[in-house]
Amino acid sequence: MSEVLIAGKSVSVNEEGYLTDPSQWNREIAEQIAAEVNITLTPKHWEVLEYLREKQQAGEMLNIRKIGKSGIVDIKEFYQLFPGGPLKNASKIAGIPKPASCI
């Protein structure tokens, strides 16, 4: 675990770059992490990120099936919004831990 400066704010991240404390997250941080994985956040992205944060805070295990049933995006769209490991990237941008699910 280490402290890094993202969007002018000092936050703690794990060795893979995931925020370890979701409360340190803000929109500027999300935008900067997104830029690192070549994603420009649109309103649809934000909807997904908010959904992920909500579910994570509620203690729910996130997986691709849940995303598909979220009513926010379908699975195809989710892969298009967050290419290259969608749930991993989306979780990183949302400032929540890396999903530990195999689904």
């Binding site: 290419p83 490991g85 969608p86 749930l87 991993k88 990237n89 195999c102 689904i103």
Partner: peptide, 11 residues
Amino acid sequence: LIMANGALMEG
């Protein structure tokens, strides 16, 4: 199925 889906989820 789990191995194929897991690969996709990893990008």
